[in-house]
Nucleic acid binder design. Structure first.
Length: 954
RNA sequence: GCCGAGGUGGCGAAAUUGGCAGACGCGCCGGUCUUAGGAGCCGGUGGAGAAAUCCGUAGGGGUUCGAGUCCCCUCCUCGGCACCA
């Protein structure tokens, strides 16, 4: 009879909640216990509920947490809700319910689903980013950003007060562009300072300008810049939220338009965010994604004077200053501000029409064009500072305004893009670098590698690295170039024109300048509104909250900032709040923070690589600089769980007429939403004919040598693959269903047994039964078939047979090692093996039964607790000592050794474990199966690898 | 195109330092109990072969007594980036 998992699981889930079994101890109570902070990426509680992908990571961290508790470690293992955000609000609008209601309902459903899996969270530490007691501190951290600036000398954030002081005591001065620079007179530059002095002292500035200067230095600042405006969502989006020119949420079109927005100065931290990746135990691929996103490139900015306008120079950014002599033209981004100034009257028409053409094209169309490079001559010429040569200036959309200086020197001989453009416009191509190995580079494309400088005057003969150094030094001396570093990373666009987010703790005066509200006024609550819909314009919904909007302070009228923070704000620091979730005075108590941080293990999906994980690291570093946290990085070790795909599907391609086409004949296989759901589509090789995939039943296909074919038409190859689970594809597996049918313990085991945690793997419901059989067999082994309630009839107080004792110790070792290394699949395999062996006994010795139960507990906690109780214990096993293994019990008295002849296996011999090499070789040579292979041959060598094998070479 | 990860039975996967390829689970085959089996139990299961034996870790080459594992080349799959100067 199968064990009653439903009753058992309910019973123990209630027990754990009522007894607060998994409460983490505060440092004061923990004594000498070591700590472990084991964290899951908290979910966005969507309306569709938990997905089978969520419990994969949650179960992994749960196993670790339960294991560590049994090892006597103080474990912090919390869960919460990232509950602000677009989907809840979109849903609220669609159904005309307040997002607060839908969010509460979704959280309730998520909590129920997560608790039904028996995960050992400390529920007293649950956080919800939409709770005013939580977002009060999100707003507080925003004020920290607002009241700080980045000190470029020390490379760290400091309070804005410090900046003010430095300006007032004239260590810093204000440059013409409003930026803050070191006072040259403080730098031993008095001699030239007199004539160069264009910077101004703080006290010389009018009050308004003083405020502008300070505001421009803040880590949270307002700026009017071109942003990603998404009319479909009625909000702007950050670069990270735009994928292929469309919104990541909903897939709506995004357009560039200038808007005044809150920005966070993450670029100031680019270097530290990049360098500190080396301190982290994270997957290499994920670190690489962050490196790519930060996109550091080291080079030089070089000034090119404009021919005929001595006052005007255009600065270009290049990573290859060693190729300056090969620059045969210059290109500005079409929207570059100097274009109007340099374009002579007779070229205006051509330039303007090109710009109009570019503006009408979407990013998509631009990208689709690939190597087709367009552009027009401006009519102006620039002077190359290395040789005085006059080169034509073009505008072309392959140069981006947003990167570097928005202008390049074009070296077609050594840059692919410049090469393509030069070819298309008949511009000269002049090689100035030759390969170091003396080979001749192909003439039909650019040679982009490093080499030796040629035709380059002062740097002739130098290898690339040295040539770069020297040319920068020479030009720097002439004042026409300087070393420069550029990043792809942009400042973080931090405003959203939506209702369901944290309000900014900011007031705007009549001139639109920002004033922070006092910390004592936090939290600044979202106003209750019946109409929270987007306005259809960039004006945020909060502007409709008339009572809330206007504020009187000191006789002045202010309006509140009506933008809200983006979804990522709350998740930037939630791991800190878990440490001290009910603190009314601080966002986290410093002693507790020091005890628990950094997070020892963080598990979540790779989709957060450049959003959450980069933003959170940035906030953490700011908090660190300001002395609010003790750690430089928040997440010491991070693991990405692999995606769980839907069940494997078989498709045959069919032409429009319905006749089958072999998958071998298909190209560009992809998915398309055809209105009747998502379909697999492809095109016929050597043609444009569109093919549609038709889903097949497993029985209709057959495996052949190197693939699958139609059973009744083996000439037709079949497409076999697993798809990402999605509602529109209809292949989503619901955890409620699985837990109902098989129980939570079985579900947990199956998810962990599918394969390595990090691997992407297809779901296969049919396989679950294996884990169900395992649990039922374990139950039968210990409890028996028709047990009286509460008993464990198959337990005896006798010694464990030798071979089983050895197996038990082996299992204790293997399971412990595997859990520590997150190899849950092989740990479970070992438990199954031990259980299979126990099944051969007529009764199970108590020690074996108890150890097995404890080893099983992290994986299948409900059945383990029940078995533990039936074994006569009255308290939960959650903090029982983890079994220990005895090295001496692992040793066998005899060992079986393979015997090879010329590396091929011929026999296995059994010898005493302590036999010496001579004895073993002699025994091996005598083996009947080995003899024929040695007969008549000369024995050239005999090898004995201790404990491993014997090999004869003949 | 560039970067990263990977390719092992019908399927999911194992395999410390190079040392018995396929642990464990699914499926499948045979047996058993049963009024019944989509339950349980026992046995088998990489391919070919009656067997001896041979062949087998994407393909090709190499190093080695010995290669899934190390080196070189090629192919394929997945993920990321993609005019970033």
């Amino acid at each position: 009879m199968a064990y009653n998992f439903t009753a058992i699981e309910k019973k123990w889930q209630r027990y754990w909640l009522e007894n607060k079994t998994f409460a983490a101890l505060d440092p004061a109570e923990a004594g000498g216990m070591s700590k472990a902070y084991v964290l899951d990426m908290f979910p966005y509680p969507s309306g569709s509920g938990l997905h089978v992908g969520h419990p994969e990571g949650y179960t992994a961290t749960d196993i670790i947490s339960r294991y560590l508790r049994m090892k006597g470690v103080n474990v912090l293992h919390p869960m919460g809700w990232d509950a602000f955000g677009l989907p809840a609000e979109q849903y609220a609008i669609k159904t005309n319910t307040h997002p607060r209601q839908t969010t509460e309902r979704n959280i309730g459903n998520f909590r129920r689903q997560i608790q039904m899996l028996g995960l050992s969270y400390d529920w007293d530490r649950e956080v919800d980013t939409t709770d005013p007691d939580y977002y009060r501190w999100t707003q507080w951290i925003f004020l920290q950003l607002f009241n700080s600036y980045f000190d470029p000398v020390d490379q760290k954030a400091r309070p804005i007060k410090h900046l003010l002081q430095e300006l007032m005591n004239e260590n810093l001065v204000v440059a013409p562009d409003g930026s803050v620079v070191l006072n040259p007179t403080q730098e031993g530059m008095e001699s030239i300072a007199g004539e160069m002095r264009i910077e101004r002292l703080w006290r010389e500035l009018p009050a308004d300008e003083q405020r502008d200067v300070i505001d421009a230095q803040r880590l949270a600042y307002m700026d009017e810049i071109p942003v990603n405006w998404c009319p479909g969502l009625g909000t702007v989006l950050s670069n990270e939220e735009v994928i292929d020119g469309k919104s990541e949420v909903g897939g709506f079109a995004v357009e560039r338009r200038p808007m005044r927005q809150w920005m966070l100065r993450i670029t100031a931290y680019a270097d530290r965010l990049l360098a500190d990746l080396n301190l982290l135990e994270w997957p290499e691929s994920l670190k690489e994604m962050q490196r790519n996103w930060i996109g550091k490139s080291v080079g030089a900015e070089v000034d090119f004077e404009m021919d005929g306008d001595e006052d005007l120079a255009v600065s270009v950014f290049t990573t290859r200053p060693d190729t300056l002599y090969g620059a045969t033209y210059m290109v500005l981004a079409p929207e570059h501000p100097l274009v109007d100034r340099i374009t002579p009257a007779d070229r205006r028409e051509a330039v303007e029409s090109y710009r109009r053409m570019i503006a009408a094209r979407s990013d998509r169309e631009r990208m689709a064009d690939g190597k087709q490079k367009t552009g027009v001559f401006t009519g102006a010429h620039a002077v190359n500072p290395v040789n005085g040569e006059k080169i034509p200036v073009y505008i072309a959309d392959y140069v981006l305004m947003g990167y570097g200086t928005g202008a390049i020197m074009a070296v077609p001989a050594h840059d692919e893009r410049d090469f393509d453009f030069a070819r298309a416009n008949n511009l000269p191509i002049r090689p100035v670098v030759k390969p170091a190995d003396g080979s001749t580079p192909p003439a039909d494309r650019a040679f982009v590698g490093e080499g030796i400088a040629i035709h380059s005057d002062v740097i002739n003969g130098l290898p690339t690295a040295q040539a770069k150094e020297k040319i920068i030094a020479v030009l720097d001396g002439e004042g026409t170039a300087h070393r420069s570093v550029n990043y792809k990373l942009r400042d973080w666009l931090f405003s959203r024109q939506r209702y369901w987010g944290e309000p900014f703790p900011i007031l705007l005066d009549k001139e639109g300048r920002a004033v922070a509200i006092d910390e004592s006024e936090l939290p600044l609550r979202l106003p209750e509104m019946d109409d929270f819909k987007p306005t259809g314009t960039p004006e945020p919904p909060l502007s409709k909250a008339a009572d809330w909007l206007n504020v009187q302070r000191d006789g002045q009228t202010y309006t509140r900032e009506t933008n809200t923070m983006p979804q990522w704000a709350g998740s930037c620091w939630y791991y800190l709040r878990y440490i001290d979730p009910h603190n009314k005075d601080r966002f986290v108590d410093p002693d507790k923070e020091r005890y628990w941080m950094p997070v020892d293990l963080y598990v979540g999906g790779v989709e957060h690589a450049v959003l959450h994980l980069l933003y959170a690291r940035f906030w953490h570093k700011v908090l660190f600089d300001l002395g609010h946290v003790s750690s430089n990085e928040p997440f010491a070790r991070l693991v990405n769980q692999g995606l769980i795909l839907g069940e494997t599907e078989y498709h045959v391609f069919e032409s429009a007429s319905g006749s089958p086409v072999s998958a071998a004949e298909a190209r560009n296989i992809g998915e398309e939403n055809t209105g009747s759901g998502i379909q697999l589509v492809a095109y016929r090789k050597n043609g444009d004919e569109k093919l549609i995939g038709r889903r097949l039943d497993e029985a209709e296909v057959e495996k052949v040598a190197d693939g699958y074919v139609l059973r009744d038409n083996p000439a037709i190859r079949v497409d076999v693959r697993s798809f990402k689970m999605s509602k529109s594809r209809g292949n989503v597996v619901n955890p409620d269903q699985i837990v109902g049918d098989y129980g939570a313990d079985c579900f947990r085991l199956y998810e962990m047994y599918m394969g390595p945690l990090e691997a992407q793997k297809p779901w296969n419901t049919r396989d679950i039964v294996g884990m169900s059989r395992f649990l039922n067999a374990a139950w039968r082994n210990l409890v028996g078939d028709d047990e009286p309630a509460g008993s464990a009839v198959r337990i005896v107080d006798s010694a464990i047979p030798d071979d089983l004792n050895r197996q038990m110790h082996r299992t204790i070792r293997k399971v412990g090692e595997d859990i520590a290394a997150l190899r849950f699949n092989t740990a479970i395999a070992e438990l199954i093996k031990l259980n299979n062996d126990m099944g051969k006994l007529t009764a199970v010795p108590r020690e074996l039964a108890e150890n097995f139960t404890l080893l099983l507990a992290p994986f299948a906690p409900h059945i383990a607790e029940e078995l533990w109780q039936r074994l006569g214990h009255h308290k939960s096993l959650a903090r029982r000592p983890w079994p220990t293994f005895d090295e001496s019990k692992l040793a066998e008295s005899t060992m079986e050794l393979p015997v090879q002849v010329n590396g091929k296996l011929r026999d296995r011999i059994s010898v005493p474990a302590d036999a010496d090499e001579q004895t073993i070789l002699a025994a091996a040579a005598k083996s009947e199966k080995v003899q024929p292979w040695l007969a008549g041959k000369t024995l050239r060598k005999q090898l004995y690898v201790p404990g491993k094998l014997v090999n004869f070479v003949v």
